[in-house]
Amino acid sequence: MSTWRMPAETEPHTCTWMAWPSSGYTDGDDARHAWASVALAVAEFEPVRMVVDPSAIRDARNWLGGAVEYFQAPLDDAWMRDIGPTFVVGPAGLGAVDWVFNGWGAQSWATWEKDARIARRVAEWAGATIVGSEMVNEGGGIHVDGHGTVLVTETVQLDPGRNPGWTKERVEGELRRTLGVREVVWLPRGLTRDYEEFGTRGHVDIVATMTAEKTVLLHVQHAPEHPDHLLDAPLRRALPADWTIIDLPAPAGVEDGHGPVDHSYVNHLVCNAGVVACTFDDPRDAQALEILAAAYPGRRVAGVDARAIFARGGGIHCITQQEPAIPGGES
């Protein structure tokens, strides 16, 4: 039995960690504007700690000023959910799972020599006990309810580019040891676009998230011409029969210049007293924000245009990582 537990995202946070985009395909003023907009929205609810490559510290300060706290470390990329640690709590206080990171399954376009060190650096800055792991995994590949259940997808943890030869039983054992979960719910796969260039091969945090015990928000693509429309039935079959499923319809826009989009309102961050949600200048934005407000009663929902983030392969949840508060400590 693990002494660690990964809290639900709805539990109190000390802060949210992010990384500043400064090179490669996450570079560009549109990306910096999007990352900055997310950071400023999160800062309305809780402190934001921004990891910045030393070459970009002046640029980050120009965008964010004194709204965040800065930490300098070499970076390859800016997806803090995946390169940062997964925080857990236990009798020893704050812990941080340091998964093996290999560029989302050693993808040809990815570089990760610097990013592979970020989880340990962030853990040290946070004063967390490092919980080591031999499993290749990313924070976007898991979602927990804080009551012993974790959601995963078969195409991430069992990806031959990540964990060749691993079985479901071995993955489940490692998730129990590191996150303190009892039940692992396997979804068959992620959204279609996520298997194309710059995708993650099926992260769960763009498909489904748990808002409470046995309650899941599920991405639903109603447009029959979109390939994700066919995912609805197998995703529902994979979820336990006694769970409550809240449909979160996809945006009305189904294509961009590269094909069917993976725009999803599921990829939001729950903060202290708030929710920072993706918007897409889409007719369904308002409906999605209303569904999220009902799913998280008592929290203010703030929408941020996430199109520049999705154009690079992720969303708001992908670029943030919450640090849970320790009971009796800072919150």
Rank of each mutant, 00 (worst) to 15 (best):
A96C: 14
H219P: 01
T155S: 14
V185H: 14
V275N: 00
L218D: 00
G199C: 04
R5D: 04
L191V: 15
V204H: 01
Q221L: 03
H33P: 00
G127D: 14
E134P: 10
M18G: 04
D262E: 11
V38W: 03
M6T: 06
C15K: 14
D205H: 12
R58K: 09
M135Q: 10
R201K: 11
A34D: 02
V207C: 00
E255M: 12
A306E: 15
T16P: 04
G329D: 04
A123R: 08
S23I: 07
C278W: 11
L292V: 09
L235N: 09
A31I: 09
P283T: 15
T215I: 11
E138W: 08
V136H: 06
P297W: 05
V152A: 12
G141D: 07
G66M: 09
G28A: 08
S133V: 05
L289C: 05
L248C: 08
G95Y: 01
I246R: 06
N62P: 00
G105F: 02
R117C: 12
V275A: 01
P324Y: 07
L269T: 10
P188N: 10
G165K: 03
G165P: 05
R117V: 13
A128I: 10
D281C: 14
G298M: 06
D281S: 15
T26G: 00
D30Y: 06
R193L: 15
R299F: 00
V156Q: 13
L218F: 01
E44R: 14
L179M: 10
A308M: 07
V254D: 02
A277W: 14
Y296A: 03
T111A: 15
D262C: 15
Q157E: 13
P164V: 01
P21R: 10
H203V: 00
T178D: 13
L158V: 09
G161P: 11
T149S: 14
T200W: 04
R81Q: 02
I130P: 03
G165H: 06
V144E: 03
D77Y: 09
P54R: 03
A293D: 03
N102E: 11
P164H: 06
K168C: 12
S133Q: 07
D59A: 12
D242E: 15
G65F: 05
D205E: 11
C278L: 11
P7I: 02
V185W: 08
C271F: 01
